[in-house]
Amino acid sequence: MSQKYDITIKNIFSDMADDIMSYFLGLQYTKIDELNIEFARVERRDSDMIFKCTTDKGNVAVHIEFQSENDGKMPYRMLRYSLEIMEKHNLIPYQVVVYIGKDNVKMANSLSYDFGEQNTLNYRYRIINVGDIKFTDVLKTDYYDLYSLLPLMDQNRRKEEGEKYLERCVEAIKNIPLDINKKKDIAFKAEILSGIVYKREVIEKAFMEVIRMFRIEESETYKMIIEKGEKEKSIKIAKKLLKEGMDIDRIAEITELSKEEIKKLMN
């Protein structure tokens, strides 16, 4: 990835760290501190993510790199990063490459040699191919930040369904039970990441509807309609509770109607 794209990727994934470590890595951990460091001796670039975490096996440095293309030099890069982490922070690195590319993973995840008992190397790290993650599996969770990655998931289904798959992803984002600003953020990231596997015109077509929906939801008229519907629902509940003889103060707490509004319903 170019340095410019590295920066974009880092910004996109910065607030996904907890969901990635919990869902992808399956780690039971407590995050202590962010350890993002520049590997000046190596690539003259910043790491994507490094966190000092405490686990059931003690403190570790969780190091996550995002890769959108196959890189034959990846094992060498990761080993150098590992050594930098150990030297600077005196922590065992738990390293993972999260592959978000269009093609199948073709990178090695290890380096080893054996030149006698006194001269050996056996180094290994994890590679997680986002394309292997099932669309339906993620939708069963509440890891909503990961919805930004849906367009890159389920590689076989994505290839079979084409742009229809991207439309499914957009629909899933529309239905997330979060406030509009958070959904807009997730949709924006999903649109950017879609560019790795889809053409521009397909992306614009798929995201056109969700953008329109967000604009509608932000409009004052839409808000008034929603508020009116909620008010009518509260009034209906209040009338039912009054018939059951519930105290006005308690009804006000449940429905969020004022006592004056509830008293008017008694007439």
Score class of each variant (00 low, 15 high):
Arg250Phe: 13
Val42Lys: 12
Asn156Val: 11
Glu117Lys: 14
Arg200Lys: 15
Tyr5Leu: 13
Gln118Lys: 15
Ile133Trp: 05
Gln155His: 13
Ser2Gln: 11
Glu218Asn: 11
Ala108Asn: 15
Glu230Phe: 09
Asp114Lys: 13
Leu91Lys: 01
Tyr144Asp: 00
Ile262Arg: 00
Asp142Leu: 08
Ile216Pro: 01
Lys134Val: 07
Ala206Gly: 06
Ala172Thr: 04
Lys239Cys: 06
Lys263Cys: 05
Leu257Gln: 02
Asp18Glu: 15
Asp114Gly: 06
Glu87Tyr: 09
Lys239Arg: 15
Lys88Tyr: 10
Thr54Ala: 06
Leu139Lys: 12
Gly26Asn: 06
Phe51Ser: 04
Asp145Cys: 08
Ile226Gly: 06
Ile32Asp: 08
Leu111Thr: 06
Glu217Ile: 08
Ala172Trp: 03
Ser82Met: 13
Leu83Asp: 10
Lys264Ser: 11
Gly101Met: 02
Lys205Pro: 02
Ile100Ser: 00
Leu25Ala: 07
Gly58Val: 09
Gly131Arg: 05
Glu209Met: 09
Glu218Tyr: 01
Tyr165Asn: 01
Phe188Gly: 12
Lys240Arg: 14
Ile9Asn: 02
Arg200Gln: 15
Leu139Ile: 10
Glu244Asp: 14
Ile248Phe: 01
Ser110Val: 02
Ala190Met: 04
Arg168Thr: 08
Arg126Val: 09
Asp18Ile: 10
Glu230Ala: 14
Leu178Trp: 12
Ile176Tyr: 02
Met21Val: 08
Glu117Phe: 14
Glu65Lys: 01
Glu87Thr: 12
Glu253Ser: 12
Tyr94His: 11
Leu35Ala: 03
Pro75His: 05
Tyr113Ala: 03
